[in-house]
């Protein structure tokens, strides 16, 4: 049975590539979107009915189906009812949901590792979990959380609920927060299995904080570029999940979006006659100028 599932994932990966290719040409764009959607349905149905973990099929079908039905209803309604002008903010919102999904998967997988190992007498987390496995989990958590928090802020900014917010030394502050995220990610791996969950959840909180402060100072006009960047982040977070489950569809889809999204971000900057660096730290120049003007 798992042979058929591999074929499902192969078909899905090919449709993602084809879909993205067709999306970049006006004549075929709509068809490309439908092809990618078809591949996604194959991958999802295949996973639900054919996936086996150590010879055991998946359970909790009522939970899975009710979650999918809820998500489908809300997603379809939101996408159908939205005004044409509000579409970019909706894309940002959906992107944030994808990021949150990736982060939640990694958090649950961490929780499994933590429960499995906490009965052992004080050994280090690094002794019981291979580094590649931990890297996939922690990278998925961090990137997913940043993408979630950032996308929600971008969504709020585009619909006018959140105002630009800058303070002096914000850039330095962001760098420090990011350094702390990395520090706690490494610290978690080096700590005792019994208490490894504390630094892990500090890492999650700091990553969320970083996502918020990463997007907050960026001006509203630059939001589409930032959304595109966060989009590619979520792609990478999805690919981390692909590493975790050794799932080729997640890996190809994630990395494809990660790479294409990064290039798209650069192309969008170029179309606006700005550089990415300019967009990301441009708010600095902006505030400095207005401050000078005020004098």
């Amino acid at each position: 049975m798992s042979g058929i599932l591999s074929i499902c994932y192969l078909v899905a990966s090919v449709t993602f590539i084809l879909g993205l290719k067709m999306l970049s040409n006006p004549a075929t764009a709509r068809k490309g979107n439908l092809i990618a959607a078809g591949g996604m349905i194959i991958a999802i149905l295949g996973t639900i009915f054919l996936y086996e973990n150590d010879g055991k099929k998946l359970g909790n079908y009522p939970w899975i189906f009710s979650a999918i039905i809820i998500g489908t209803i809300i997603g379809t309604l939101a996408a159908k009812k939205v005004k044409m002008t509000a579409m970019p903010e909706l894309v940002s919102f959906f992107n944030g949901m994808g990021g949150a999904c990736a982060a939640l998967i990694s958090i649950i997988e961490f929780d499994y590792l933590f429960r499995e190992n906490k009965m052992f007498d004080s050994t280090f987390f690094s002794h019981v979990v291979p580094v590649g496995h931990y890297l996939a989990i922690i990278a998925g958590t961090i990137i997913g959380s940043i993408s979630f928090a950032g996308s929600v802020i971008a969504w709020g900014k585009l619909n006018g609920k959140i105002k630009d917010f800058t303070f002096k030394g914000q850039h330095l502050f962001n760098l420090v927060v990011f350094a702390l995220v990395i520090f706690f990610a490494i610290y978690t791996y080096q700590s005792d299995v019994k208490v490894a969950n504390i630094p892990f959840f500090i890492t999650v909180a700091l990553a969320l904080l970083y996502g918020v402060f990463f997007v907050l100072p960026i001006g509203g006009a630059d939001m589409p570029v930032v959304i595109s960047l966060l989009n590619s982040f979520t792609g990478v977070a999805a690919a981390c999940g692909g590493f975790l489950y050794n799932n080729k569809a997640m890996l190809t889809g994630g990395i494809l979006v990660g790479a294409a999204g990064t290039l798209l971000t650069i192309l969008m900057c170029r179309a606006m006659n700005r550089s990415l660096k300019n967009v990301l730290i441009g708010s600095f120049g902006g505030t400095a100028k207005s401050a000078v003007g005020a004098k």
């Binding site: 996604m40 999802i44 939970w63 899975i64 979650a67 999918i68 809820i70 998500g71 489908t72 809300i74 997603g75 379809t76 939101a78 996408a79 909706l90 919102f93 959906f94 992107n95 949901m97 994808g98 949150a100 999904c101 939640l104």
Partner: peptide, 10 residues
């Protein structure tokens, strides 16, 4: 799963 479905369908 709910959030993931939102992302895909939406």
């Amino acid at each position: 799963v709910v959030l993931g479905t939102l992302n895909v369908v939406g």
